[in-house]
Design a protein around this nucleic acid. Structure first.
Lengths: 234, 234
DNA sequence: AAAATTAAACGTTAATTTGACATATATTAA
DNA sequence: TTAATATATGTCAAATTAACGTTTAATTTT
């Protein structure tokens, strides 16, 4: 049985994939090898298949590009402007993902002509992908101000200065290092390791590890990690 | 031109419409007059038309049921389970709306066999509408803890005790009235009127009005209106 | 070998906000 | 005139925050 007299529409799923290389927040984009807009960059995406739900499609698309499974992946929002795709009307459900930039499969991304771009230097994107990226940036800032999601972007072990730099890149601002470390340490999410990173100072900075148990348990807690976060939401 | 070899899918838009009658948080639902699931209740919705975008469809659907325009209406999330609609695969984009319950057009809602249900006593809903309502409740609690959205549910003038009751209904908990009023007054969003509401006490309670200018300006500010809001997010 | 250098780590303080609780007030009903 | 009561305002210790200052551990320079 089917509904009568209704219009069926293409449904696409696009992923906004964030990474952090220690210096900058990056976005994983692919270069189109086909018309329209050959050579322009776009988010990784695909059409929703008849046998998969939205979350599955998003996981598939992320997996196809990065080889990664079980990483942070959350529905962002849906876009349905009439003319957003010049070829044919398409409703697009976007997801945003945070991955450890060192863990993706370079061979796969290469075959997609994919590359990482600094969030501050994004190339020309197709369709309404700029809008999608902007929404994702806002959501990242919003959510990271309240919940410890940015740990998803870090390697297993990291130092407090590295962590602070990550937050500073996300909010494009400087934080007081004394207040920052106090705040983050007070979450109880960090476990100090014996080892030090000596690459960026003589003294070295202790490595920390995320307490994954507490992370999962307290993920929903409201942490006020950033003072006046609304300042950074454009 | 069209994309080749892709499956087109029905796209629906459903609205979760909240109201507040002074006593309880209510949800506006319609009773189905057709199969499948005749007589069961559902959210107000409709299929996305070829000439409208998602926001327009949501506005249309809200308008068709309530006669209201320019009220609080925000995209919630999209649902795409394969079997969510037994008739035919349908991806559904949900919106949630906060309206002044005294302003809707009763004639229209009557013609839809619509009715308001206490959030604590929701009838049997079709498809995955329970899931949608739950997501909407969580988002309402989440957002109301940070931003003054609940004013959207109130009439032009209201008292502090009424406002407190609204918050207590949303979070299904009691707040300390002294701390609550201090917190809400400190937002600077309330303008005291000369008049009193005498309906619920001998002394009467002063009416207040929302400062709409400040409301719009500071809407994005993070207010911490609720202590430990994560306790209420299930 | 001693001194200089520097990021990292730890500390201080006043101001603000919070949570828990107490009291005063305006009005009506008894 | 008094009792009753929701409303309004007040108190205070504890916790949190914002804005700074100082010490430490290691390397590099002298």
């Amino acid at each position: 049985m089917q509904y009568q007299g209704q219009t069926r529409i293409l449904v696409a799923v696009d992923c906004i994939i964030f990474g952090f290389d220690g210096e900058e927040i990056k976005l994983l984009l692919i270069q189109r090898g086909f018309e329209p807009r050959v050579r322009d960059w776009s988010l990784m995406g695909g059409f929703l298949k008849p046998d998969e739900n939205l979350d599955e499609a998003a996981s598939r698309i992320l997996y196809e590009l990065t080889g990664l499974k079980e990483v942070y992946l959350e529905q962002l929002m849906s876009f349905g402007q009439l003319d957003r795709d010049p070829v044919e009307r398409t409703v697009c459900v976007t997801y945003f993902s945070l991955i450890n930039i060192h863990k993706y499969e370079k061979q796969i991304t290469d075959s997609f002509h994919a590359d990482w771009f600094s969030i501050n230097n994004i190339p020309r994107l197709i369709f309404d992908h700029v809008k999608m990226v902007n929404e994702a940036k806002i959501k990242l800032r919003y959510k990271a101000a309240l919940h410890p999601i940015l740990f998803e972007l870090l390697p297993e072990k990291f130092t407090i200065p590295q962590l602070q730099n990550l937050y500073q890149q996300v909010y494009d601002t400087e934080f007081d290092n004394r207040n920052f470390s106090r705040k983050l340490l007070s979450t109880g999410l960090l476990m100090k390791l014996g080892e030090k990173d000596k690459s960026s100072s003589k003294k070295g900075a202790f490595y920390y590890q995320l307490d994954k148990e507490k992370y999962k348990q307290n993920f929903q807690a409201f942490l006020n990690l950033i003072p006046n976060p609304d300042k950074f939401l454009l």
